[in-house]
Design a protein around this nucleic acid. Sequence first.
DNA 1: GCATATTTGTCCGTATGTATA
DNA 2: CTATACATACGGACAAATATG
Lengths: 233, 233
Amino acid sequence: MTPAGDEAQVGGIVGDFPPANGQPLADVICDRVREMLIAGDFGPGEKLLEQQVAAQFGISRNTLREVFRLLTSQGLLVHYPNRGVFVAAPGAAAVVDIYRMRRVIQQGAVQAAIPGHPALVRMKELAQRAKEQAADGDWRAVGTLNMEFHRAMVELCDSPRLSAAFGLLLAELRLVFGRIRETAVLHTPYIETNGVLVDLLEQGRLAAAADELDGYLLKSERSILAALQRLKS
Amino acid sequence: MTPAGDEAQVGGIVGDFPPANGQPLADVICDRVREMLIAGDFGPGEKLLEQQVAAQFGISRNTLREVFRLLTSQGLLVHYPNRGVFVAAPGAAAVVDIYRMRRVIQQGAVQAAIPGHPALVRMKELAQRAKEQAADGDWRAVGTLNMEFHRAMVELCDSPRLSAAFGLLLAELRLVFGRIRETAVLHTPYIETNGVLVDLLEQGRLAAAADELDGYLLKSERSILAALQRLKS
DNA sequence: GCATATTTGTCCGTATGTATA
DNA sequence: CTATACATACGGACAAATATG
C-alpha cells in the first residue's frame, strides 16, 4: 500500500553539510493534520482513533503516534492516558488565557521592535490586502491576512523563539475560530485598526502603538467570547 | 560517561516495572531524559543512537522515538533527517534570543501581576532560601532556587500557557548552564536583587520592579555570554 | 455487576534508503 | 567505491485498560 508514496526523495545528491533532505513523514503528516484541524475537518472534542486515522493517511500506527505527540504538545490535541486522543475544544477559559499571553507577547514585541525591520513593510502590505479583500467580501481571506499581520508584528523584534511560541497561540486560536460562523463580525472592525498600527509604528511611536494594540486585543477578545457564549445556547 | 550507573533498566517483561502506570512510558522517559540533559549527563552536541539509548532505558525504539519528538519540539534535542538526534548545543545566538524572550515574558508578567497572588509568597520564600544556601556555599542549590524564583514570577499573572512557554525557555537555559563551571559567579550577585524585587512587588510598584528586572536580565545575559566566550578558547 | 469487544500501550522483526568510514 | 551502520517506516503481536452490551 503506502499510497503516500509520492514523497519522492529527489533531495540534493550534492547536498553538502546541511541536510538537503525531505522531512520525515511524521512532520509532513503533522502539518497536514494541523491544517485539517484549523480548517474544521475534525469536530471539536472528536475522538481520533489510531487505526482509523492511520489508515486514512496511509501511514503506520507507530508513525501516527509521533504525530499525535507533537500536536498534543502544541495544544491542538488532548491526550487522556489509556483512553485516546481527542481534538482540543478550547472554551472561554482558554480564550482568556490565550489573550493574556497575546497581550504579553505582542506588546513586548512592539516595544522591542527593531526600527526599519522588513516585517513592518510586510505588515503594511498585509493590512492593504486585507482592506481590498474586505471590499470584495471575502471574510475568510480577511481572517487569514489578519493572522499574518499579527504574526509579522511579533517578528518585529526578531526572536525566533518568541515567533514560534506566538505561532502556537495563533494555531490554537484558529481552532476556536473554526467553531464560529460569523467571521465577518470577527474581523471587519479591525481592518482600520491595523492601518493605524502601521502608521504609528512607522513613526516610531511605540508606546502609542502598544496602546492601540491593547484596545484591539480587548475588543477582539470580547467579541470572541460573546460569539462563543452564543454557541453554547 | 553515564556515571548514573544505576540506570540498569532490566526491561521488566515479567517485572512489575510499569507500576501503577498513570502516564504513558514515553512521558516518564521524556522527563527522565530532560533531567539528564540539564544535569549534563549527555554532552552538548553528542549524538544519541536510537538502539543504544533505547537499551539504556529498557524501552523500545518506537517509544523512544516519541520521546525524541517531544524533546526536539522543546528545543533540547536537534534532529537532522536521516542522520539522527543530537543534544542541542545552544551558543551565543541562542542565549541572546532566550534573553530577548525572557525580557518580553517576565516584564509582561510582572506588569500584569495579580495583586496578592500566592506566587509572590513563594518568591519571598525562595529568595530567602537562596540567601541561606549561598551562605552555605551550595551554588548548585542557589542556581536551582533562582530558577524557581523566576518561574514563580511568571506565575504572578496566572497564565498556564505563558508559564509553560517560560518553562521551555528555562530548560534550554539550563542546558547552557550545564556547560559553565563557574556557577558561583553566575548566581551570587542576584541574590540581593531578588530580595529587592520581592519588596517592590509587595509594595505594588510594578514599574519599578520591571525596571529592576531589566537590569537583572541585562547583567545575567552578559555574564553568561562572557562565560561562554571563555569556554570557546 | 459481569462478560465481551474494542482500543491503547508497548514491544519485536524486518525491509529500505541514507550517510559515513 | 564498496561495505557497514543507522534512521525511517511498516506490520504484527500481545497484555492491560477501557468501553460496551
